[in-house]
Each structure stands twice: as C-alpha cells, then as structure tokens.
Amino acid sequence: MYQLTNVTKKYDQGKRSVTALNKVTLSIPDGQMVAIQGPTGGGKSTLLQMLGALDRPTEGTVELGTSNLSKLGDGPLGKIRAQEIGFVFQGFNLIPTLTAQENVETALAPLGIPAAERTARATAALASVGLGERGSHLPAELSGGQQQRVAIARALVKEPAVLLADEPTGNLDEQTRDEIMELLEGLWRDRGLTLIVVTHDSAVAKRAQRRLLIKQGVVKEIS
C-alpha cells in the first residue's frame, strides 16, 4: 500500500523554482488499478517517479508498505525498484542492442538470479505476453506493440508488487492500445498487482478502478 503525506516536489530551473507536486496526500491500497490523468506539465510523471522510488520529495513522505521511500538512500531505493516495482514506459525503453529475451533478463540481473533460471523466467514472461517466439529478435525487428509487450514482460518477470505504467499506449495505434490494455488488465487481475497508469487517454483511464486528476501539482479524485 502506498501512503503519500503532504508530498511536495520542487525543481530548480535557473533562478526560479517550479512546484511539480504541491502537498499531495494520497493512499493507494494494494491490488488497486489507478489511472492518473492531467494536462502536460501538471505533475503526472513527477508523481509516478515518487511512487516508483526514482526520486525523493522535497517535503512530505512517500511510504510503500513499511518502507519510507523519502528517507532511503540510493542503494536501498535501487533494491526496492529491483524487487517490488515494475516500470512500463511510453517509449518502451528497450536496450536496442539486446534481444527481446535479453531485455527481459536485464530486470533479473540485479537480483542475482542464476543464468539458467533467468533464461527460463524470461522465456515464460515473454510467453505470457504472447511473444514466446520472438525472444531472439532485436527491438528494431519488432512492432511498437510487440516492443511494449517486451517492456511489460521485463516489468513483470521479477513478479513485482507494483506496476507503474507511464503512458503505456501513447505511441500505439487504437487497436494495439486496446490489446496492450487488455494484456495489462489481465495481468493485473491474475497477479493481484497494484497497477498505476499515467495516461492522457480517457479510454485507457476509464478501464481503471480509480481515476485521479493531477493539475498544477494538486491531485483530485475523479468520480
């Protein structure tokens, strides 16, 4: 469960300071599917970075389970990311020189899992997203939808508690968007994940159990 309390995040841009998050207080129970919407520059990605232990707030606390993410150092935050949080990005962020199989395995590398088990789990993860036969392909040899499936497999192969998706369908056409969202929803249901999706797309947001609107750094519930 996430618990954010009075979270403020400010960025220094030259001489002026920009407030990306302004005293955000928020609870997200385990297993919930949440959509975060809002205009560009409203603070969506910043909120996702706080939730993903990629950054620390300027003020306030971010707790994931029993861990206070706002107080931990880089090392422990890295371990939490490695073990508990999966990321899916709008631009897929696959490593272009590695095959689909190897890209998935990169998520297991920090966990010290033996090579054979790593390979087996990556193969299974690719199969679970419908790319069992594409493990040896480089990202450039895959379509956008397939690349995002590989990214989802990479995020889920370590069996995280939380899956954070930043505009996961932003670069995809409508049909592929629906396929990806169906895949994510299926995985969320099957695995009991906490799924948090940042999106501009209302069609995507409507699939979530809970919708949040973030505007000028302030979060509001959308009923």
Binding site: G52, L54, D74, G75, G78, K79, R81, A82, Q83, G86, F87, F89, G91, N93, I95, P96, T106, A107, A109, P110, L111, R154, A155
Partner: peptide
C-alpha cells in the same frame, strides 16, 4: 542516457 536511466529504474546499481 535513456538506456542507463532505464537500467537504474529497474534496479541496476551504480556499480553495475
């Protein structure tokens, strides 16, 4: 940059 940022996001340490 994106590659290393992604690797850090999925838990790779600085040392690695």
């Amino acid at each position: 940059t994106r590659e290393f940022g992604t690797l850090k996001a999925i838990g790779w340490s600085n040392g690695k």
